[in-house]
Each structure stands twice: as C-alpha cells, then as structure tokens.
Design a protein around this nucleic acid. Sequence first.
DNA 1: ATAAGGCCCTGCTCGC
DNA 2: TGCGAGCAGGGCCTTA
Length: 289
Amino acid sequence: MPELPEVEVVRRGLHNWLIDRTVADVTVLHPRSVRRHLPGATDFVARLAHTRVVEARRRGKYLWLPLDSGDALMAHLGMSGQLLLRPAHEPGERHLRIRVDFTDGQRQLRFVDQRTFGHLLVDKLVDDDAGVPLPSLITHIARDPLDPAFDDDAFAAALLRRRTGLKRALLDQSLVSGIGNIYADEALWQCRLHWAAPTERLRRPQVDALLSAVRDVMTRALAEGGTSFDSLYVNVNGESGYFSRGLRAYGRADLPCERCATLLRREVFMNRSSFSCPKCQPPPEFARF
DNA sequence: ATAAGGCCCTGCTCGC
DNA sequence: TGCGAGCAGGGCCTTA
C-alpha cells in the first residue's frame, strides 16, 4: 500500500522530528521485523544505541536515517508498515514490532506492522554511481521519477530493451522505483496505455507521456498527504491521507471512466488487480504479461 | 543477463 | 454461528 508518495509523507514527518535526536535504547518485539539485519536483533540494537540522527532520506519506497556513526537506520514499510512518533507514555499499538527511545524521553519512534512484510535494518552507507550515499543493500534500486537525477533518456532506453508487459516493468524497482500497484494503474489510465502493452513496441512519446503521468499522479497524491483506504497507511502522527478520493482507476471496477463513461474493468495478473478503461486503454495486439 | 512464478504474513470479508 | 477460501500485494528468492 505505501508507495512513493506515502513513504515521502513519512520521511518528511521523521525529518521534522528526529534531526539531532540521540537514540537511548531500542526494543525489538518481533524478530521478523529485523530479518534482513543478518547479524541479528542484538547487533541491530547495539549499532543504534547512542547514535544521533542526521537526516531522513528516501529512494523509491525505501527510507533511511543517516546516523552520526556512519551507519543508517533503513526501513521498508512493505504492505502494512507504519513509522509513528508517539509520546513515550502512550500504550503500545497491537502490532508494535520495534520501539526506539531517544535521550530526551519525549517521543518514541515506533515501527508498527500488521503483516510483517516490512522491515528495519542498520546498514553501511556507500556511494552510488553519482556519489550519493546509499544503504549498501539498496544499490540495485533505481532512482525514482521524482529524483532530480532521474535520467529520462536512460529510462526510455532501458524500458524499450525489455521484453515484458508495461505494468510489470513499472513495478520492477530496479528499472524505476517508487511505483506500486495503485500508482501504476493511475498513471497508465492517465496516459491511456494498457498494462499488457509490450515494452519493446513503445515509442518515445509514449514513454514521455508515461513519465509525465507518473510524476503528475504522484505529485498530486503527495499534496493530499498520500492515499489511504483504511487505517493501514498513515503518517507519523497516525493520520490518513486523502488521495483515495483522487483515484481515477484503482479500485473502480464497474464504475464509469471519468473521461468517456465506459465502465472500468478489473483484471487479475501477477496475482494482483489491474483496473483500466476498455475504451481509453485498449488491449494491445500482442499482449505481454 | 532477463523473465516469470512462488513464497512470506495477518486480518478482514464473503459464501455455504 | 463457524469456518475455509479469497483478497490485500512488495520484494526477495529460485528457476528457466
């Protein structure tokens, strides 16, 4: 559920609150939430204690807090993860997995995650090809379309080299990051492309229209505080965003297209739903999945 | 190297 | 009322 706009909302909340605060103690309440921290939960805690948060950064759906130790506390929210800043005296949430206390004793950073697809880990920062520090475990994650250093030409070339379906390519975080099922459907609807369009047959104007659509829908969602269908996605204060009211394709099966009034359809592939307009987004002659 | 399918998780909804 | 099936699906892993 949390895609780039939702993660960016969280990043901004963390940035505002955590800069220059020092970790006092960390409690891991569920081992699965640190499963990608290979040295284990004890090491995870030890490498965070007494470090100071420098800033909050993001690439795609990953976010991390560079620390004065040279490490970074990295997070991926998965399907249901939340990072909350809560008064230390308030009771723990039902699915509280990790708790970080700071030396000022005021707010706790809480990782709450119902489905435990998300995770936290501590990682070394390494320089990417442009000299930007990045957690070592996500060097394979491509830049996202809102990154000023995103290379449209390189993306277009890489996309046309693929031999797969367009939506599958959009969801591939090593090609372009930050796009999930919701914003993929929204962007495809906006630029009138079908999810099964074969990537190798796209033309550059279509790629440009696609990138514009992705950026537009993500920017609008960000302005609304992100998309929420229920209480699963929230900002650091536990509040939901409002962009679900702005969705024009996702979740709108059998509802009229806002452009042509044709009823939108829901199709299943990759074990997930795709919503599209049969008229505005006609299926390609040769479909790839 | 790329492409594609399986798996991990919990809670909610639906039909019988 | 009980209960299993279906659904939500991102990213890592394996296989071809």
